[in-house]
Amino acid sequence: MQAVKEKVKDTVSAAKAKAKEKQAKAEEKAEVATARSRAEEELAHERGKARVAAAKMELHQEKALHREEAIQHRLRKHHGVGHHHGMPGTTTTAPAAGTTAATTTVPPPAGAPLHHHPAPAKHYY
């Protein structure tokens, strides 16, 4: 599901970048048409190239941000705090009257697994 979201965000960003590129090229054409000298035409062309490059760079940055968001989501989903309730080493006691909940930390027994996940099965071929 996250990959689909990432792809949709990338597609939207690409569409925005294409629109900005087309706008930059249209502005460049208008500037070239109103230029009075060859130097002004060249300057308008350079400005147009700079605008197109800026749109492409913005697209690149947005795609990188989408990747970062996806990676952060995966990390929170699989290794985030709060997903492993009742892990070895933590116990929660009922609060006393008029007090708040107390949590104590006890080291896990030696050789105890750190996660709830079972050990991988051993395959002998």
Rank of each mutant, 00 (worst) to 15 (best):
Q2Y: 06
Q2C: 08
Q2L: 11
A3H: 07
V4R: 12
K5L: 04
E6K: 08
K7Q: 14
K9P: 00
T11K: 08
S13N: 06
A14R: 11
A15G: 07
A17P: 00
K20A: 12
E21G: 00
K25A: 13
E27P: 01
E27Y: 07
K29E: 12
A33Q: 05
A33V: 06
S37P: 00
R38K: 10
A39L: 08
A39Y: 00
L43E: 14
H45P: 00
R47T: 04
R47C: 00
R51E: 12
A53C: 02
A54H: 03
M57D: 14
M57P: 02
M57C: 05
Q61K: 13
E62P: 01
A64F: 08
L65S: 12
H66K: 02
R67M: 07
E68P: 04
E69H: 12
A70P: 00
A70R: 14
A70S: 14
I71F: 15
I71N: 08
Q72K: 14
Q72S: 11
Q72R: 12
H73M: 07
R74Q: 06
H79N: 13
H79R: 09
V81L: 10
G82C: 04
G86C: 13
T90I: 15
T90R: 15
T90C: 10
T91C: 09
T92C: 03
T93Y: 09
T93S: 12
A94W: 09
P95S: 03
A97G: 04
A97I: 10
T100W: 15
T100L: 14
A101T: 15
A101H: 15
T103I: 15
T103F: 11
T104M: 13
V106I: 15
V106S: 15
P109K: 07
A112Q: 05
P113I: 01
P113H: 10
L114T: 11
L114P: 01
L114N: 06
H116G: 11
H117D: 04
P118W: 07
A119P: 02
A119V: 11
P120R: 01
P120I: 07
A121R: 02
K122V: 11
H123R: 09
Y124T: 09
Y124D: 13
